[in-house]
């Protein structure tokens, strides 16, 4: 039961007057139910801010955001968020961290599901470890499991694979694509990797900085399931080049 997202005329300003920072300006975006949309843009262009607004963690200064036709005023049920930092609870084990949303929502025992998720991200055998015993990339994967454990219909991810090595990252990309194909969630993915964006997304939103606006939306017309051999595909190449060009034009160098 995936849900569409409607973002219309959204602006966000932090602070006020001359000290105010305009993070987003007039952002319009329609994400269809079950669509996979990636957002790229220079550091500080408002990507995380946009995700927070969609997640109902902060209100827009102006404009409207709707999920499934209902205006967002607080975090809606059925969303999973992966934050830019893992934010794991240090006193909980890996397993218990993944379990957290279920504990809060008083859902039943899901030991098997947690096992499966940890297996999926390659963290089997680490169930009883505490976050400080894990590398940054491992922590990010725990955070991903935590977002997935409730099987949300909308998944919001802020650079979930930023701390991973190239190979693990590609594996995670493939897993994410598989999960998405199987469950048909709506996905919003922020990433700094153009390849990752093109590899995974139906559409890639390119943002420009200060104030953050949508520069252009690139449609990626590649067949699914995709894998990294698609890298050699002309269409893949073309999409990457186009995005790179757009980002360079707005003063971004990868």
């Amino acid at each position: 039961m995936a849900q569409p997202i409607t973002i219309s005329g959204v602006s966000k300003t932090f602070g006020s007057g001359t000290a105010g920072v305009q993070a987003l300006q007039d952002v319009d975006l329609e994400v269809a139910a079950g669509e996979f949309v990636a957002i790229v843009g220079a550091s500080g262009c408002g990507k995380s801010t946009l995700l927070r607004l969609v997640g109902g963690l902060a209100p827009p200064t102006s404009g409207r955001i709707e999920i499934g036709g209902k205006p967002v005023v607080e975090p809606s049920p059925g969303i999973g968020i992966v934050f830019q930092t893992p934010v794991l609870l240090p006193w909980r084990t890996v397993e218990q961290n993944v379990q957290l949303p279920l504990v809060i929502q008083r859902s039943g025992d899901a030991a098997q599901r947690i096992q499966d998720l940890l297996e999926l991200v390659g963290l089997r055998g680490f169930e009883r470890r505490r976050p400080y015993e894990l590398s940054g990339g491992m922590q990010q994967r725990v955070a991903l499991c935590r977002a997935l454990v409730t099987d949300p219909s909308l998944l919001l991810m802020d650079e979930p694979f930023g701390a991973l090595d190239a190979l693990t990252r590609e594996q995670m990309n493939l897993e994410l694509q598989r999960i998405w194909l199987e469950t048909g969630k709506t996905v919003l993915l922020i990433t700094h990797s153009i390849t990752e964006a093109v590899m995974l997304a139906d559409r890639v939103v390119v943002m420009t900085p200060r104030p953050g606006r949508i520069r252009e939306i690139i449609e990626v017309k590649l067949p699914r399931p995709r894998d990294f051999s698609a890298l050699r595909d002309a269409a893949f190449h073309e999409a990457c080049e186009r995005i790179r060009m757009l980002m360079n034009a707005s003063g971004f160098v990868e």
Binding site: E74, P75, I79, I81, V87, L100, Q105
Partner: peptide
């Protein structure tokens, strides 16, 4: 972000 996590899991 910790507070946001708490809110996100409702």
């Amino acid at each position: 972000e910790m507070i946001e996590l708490a809110r996100a899991v409702r």
